[in-house]
Simulated assay, not measured.
Amino acid sequence: MYTLNFDPAEFLSQYWQKKPILIKNAFPQFEDIISADELAGLAFEDAVASRVVVTKTNDWQIIEGPFEEYEQFGDSNWQLLVQALNHWHPDSNKLINAFRFIPDWRFDDLMVSFATPGGGVGAHIDNYDVFIIQGEGQRHWTVGDKGHYAPKNNDPTTPLIEGFEPIIDAVLEKGDLLYIPPGYPHQGQTLTLAMSYSIGFRAPSQQELFSELADSLIDNNSGLKRFTSSNEPKLASQISTSHQQDMMALITELAANPDNYQAMLGKMLSQNRFELDICEPEEPYSAEDITDYLSQGALLYRIGGLKLLRVEADSESRIFVNGEVFNYPAHIEADINKLCENFSFNNQQAVSLMQTAETQKVILELLNRGYFYFAE
């Protein structure tokens, strides 16, 4: 169990998406989720997104995984990064649970780093919120204030910048936490062999929302209302101000109707950027199989990284799972709430969920899609 040593409500009101903060000993008696050897082994797998960043003089080299060995990198000045550890390592959920005072739809992934002395990435700016938790070892972090910064080597495509004046300058040790909102420059440098964990939270951009809304309207053959006007400009070549505003009002009208955006948002925000470890059964489960497994003491688990989301004030009773819609009868709302709020269920909890036939039907569908699984 990972328990935060600070008040989440105070953090949300004073720091979340406002300013960075270093919290020493945020996780008392912190234990690494995974060993360096286990992490290195995961990066051998094709399905796992991994990379090695080699620090060079005033530059960095990025080598994409999977890897077969690491000896060529030497004893210093490199780090291994594995994205979406939570998709492949079930124990990751214990750490992620500590941050669920932020809604699941924002959660992106848990990235883990094993770094040698001198390993790191240069000064850069991210467009998402990140919590950095230090495991074994020490890393020196600096964070600057928001501002305009020159891109590294005048390269407009790089996230790296030339440098900044730090407003946070500290060495992180086991259990320390650094929170960095979008837009704040930062840089980490490894002092000793070190493990660190980055929990990222993303939100959609205007561009992404418009693109998804347009796709949704096309898929549903909706949004067909056309512009009409009551007056025309005197000049034939002119698009009048009133015409411009009235055309944009058509978009505002669409966006104001929940029927046009609720399903779109649910599908969009329940999807992941990284591959899921979907566990489809060799043969479809039946209701009898569920009863049999539970009678033998089985536990019920959600696969790592899977999001089960609901839209508040939804026009339908449904959940959104990995971009798909699952409808359910309104009278099992309490069961669906438990299903969405928990990553796993002990045997007694699972048996209790299965008491209602309609709930069992939803879970059966999720099991057969490979989104849930039984384990001892």
Rank of each mutant, 00 (worst) to 15 (best):
L306T: 03
K234D: 05
L22K: 04
Y293K: 15
D292Y: 15
G122W: 10
G41Q: 11
N231P: 01
P159R: 13
N220C: 00
Q79R: 09
K234P: 00
S315M: 04
E10M: 13
A26C: 04
N154D: 15
S242D: 07
G147Q: 06
P258S: 10
L4R: 08
M247Q: 13
G119L: 03
N342W: 08
K225T: 15
P156M: 11
Q83F: 10
Q138C: 13
E358W: 13
I132Y: 01
K18Y: 01
M111W: 02
H87I: 05
V362D: 07
I102G: 02
I239N: 12
G188L: 04
I33D: 05
I62T: 15
Q83Y: 12
L224F: 09
G144D: 08
D75K: 06
R318T: 09
A26R: 00
R139Q: 08
Q14M: 08
N77E: 00
N153G: 03
Q245K: 15
F101L: 03
F164C: 09
V171G: 07
S317G: 06
W141Y: 02
R310M: 11
R139K: 05
Q348S: 13
A357C: 00
F27I: 10
Y328E: 04
D109G: 07
D292W: 13
G65V: 02
K361C: 03
Q72D: 01
G297F: 09
E232D: 04
N342Y: 09
D246L: 11
D292N: 14
M354C: 13
G137L: 02
I336N: 04
A49C: 01
A36K: 14
Y128E: 14
T356L: 11
Y15I: 11
L177G: 01
R369S: 11
